[in-house]
Design a binder for these strands. Structure first.
Lengths: 217, 217
DNA sequence: TATCAAATTTAGATTAGCCTAAAAAATATT
DNA sequence: AATATTTTTTAGGCTAATCTAAATTTGATA
């Protein structure tokens, strides 16, 4: 059984190793967790003793298969709870993260599995991220960034990269959400900004915005 | 903001002061929490510094009004979650306590209030205990112990005193639950055991059982 | 009331998770 | 390649919540 804190570390390491390849650096985890690098080193040792990560001094860490499983169990709970908050408790997609960070630590297999059943076995959370099933398996459709969508090719928004409240609320105001059909009408060479059709409306978005929207072509 | 542990203490003190009158003794809390009396003394001092309890050396503690509020906020969450687990997640009333002990510490007013709305403002949890509303007010109907119900007077089971899994499952087997109509047919003077009609069936229960069942006459 | 037992508190230690400051290793730069 | 910079680790402390053992207070009993 893990403590609250070890669970946070495992999740952070899991997410970090998704975006980068190879081992995960001390500093990158320190930034995610909001702790000093020296504290992270301490925890790396502890996790290594528990065989949840492979750790070699000055070489960063990588999750063992047991570590991955533990991390996925937390990700599963996090995303199920986020789904519940949005679908039944009137939370908006920009409000769920902080609460789910707490709920993800609740220990009860029955609770998790019943919640999943109650939600009718959702495959994706409100941000479009895939939810591991009971066997911890998740399949994500192959998606691209909106920056990579060719001109005049129909696509659908299936997720976001940046989960910050600011970005999500910005998308709300632009009426872009999961499921919104998107068409790139024009790409400005000067600054890579895009004119797009999103649902029924035509609008302009910056490159920065486009790099944070996932599209299924 | 309280730590997990201070919340547990406040809740324990609250429950202890419900059953007994006057101040709450160090040892009684030690037993509930599962800690040594010396640890409890430490915590009493801490809670006293935070003005959540009134504490005088060797004299036990009592909750301040702020302490009562904090305790009731936890009780509210605990009972709402228990209700949710039973009504939507297929938990039996003997399985909810341990999970609710974790869920009661989740901090989010919005979550609590939306959960309450989702459950349609329940007034009592699965064990018949009253749920404090948003203003922390709860009204419990005036109930008596089954031992006090006069012969041949109709009553309804509205709660249980002992919340242990063992007792609750015993009641399940006897088909006694919240809402079951109860009639005392005979009281045995020798050992105070009762012959009762519970729902459609007639059965015998011991005095010990009867003192753990609440009845609304 | 004097004594004894039980309850409570104090003193001092332990553990997990964090910190700062200094040392060591890895990496980048000239 | 030598030096400078950045990253990481080590060493030593701190705090919250716990513990054990010893001391103190309360209150029950002879």
């Amino acid at each position: 059984m893990q403590t609250l804190s070890t669970e946070d570390y495992l999740k952070a390491i899991y997410h970090a190793s998704q975006s980068a390849s190879g081992t995960v650096a001390t500093t990158s985890i320190a930034n995610k967790i909001g702790a000093k690098p020296s504290s992270v080193t301490d925890m790396f040792k502890k996790l290594s003793d528990q065989k949840l990560v492979k750790y070699e001094k000055y070489q960063g860490v990588s999750l063992t298969s047991e570590g991955v499983k533990t991390a996925l169990r937390i990700v599963r709970k996090h995303r199920l709870w986020e789904s519940f908050l949005v679908s039944h408790l009137n939370f908006n997609w920009d409000e769920v993260h902080q609460v789910a960070e707490q709920l993800e630590h609740i220990q009860s297999e029955k609770l998790t599995n019943e919640l999943e059943r109650f939600l009718d076995y959702p495959t994706h959370d409100p941000h479009g991220d895939p939810i591991p099933n009971r066997a911890l398996f998740m399949k994500s459709y192959n998606k691209i960034l909106l920056t990579e969508l060719p001109l005049n090719k129909e696509g659908v928004c299936v997720g976001v990269k940046d989960n910050s409240s600011d970005f999500l609320r910005y998308l709300d105001r632009r009426q872009i959400g999961i499921g919104t059909p998107i068409l790139v009408l024009h790409r400005e060479d000067f600054d890579q900004s895009l004119h797009i059709q999103a649902g029924n409306s035509t609008l302009m978005i910056t490159q920065k915005t486009a790099e944070n929207i996932y599209i299924k072509p």
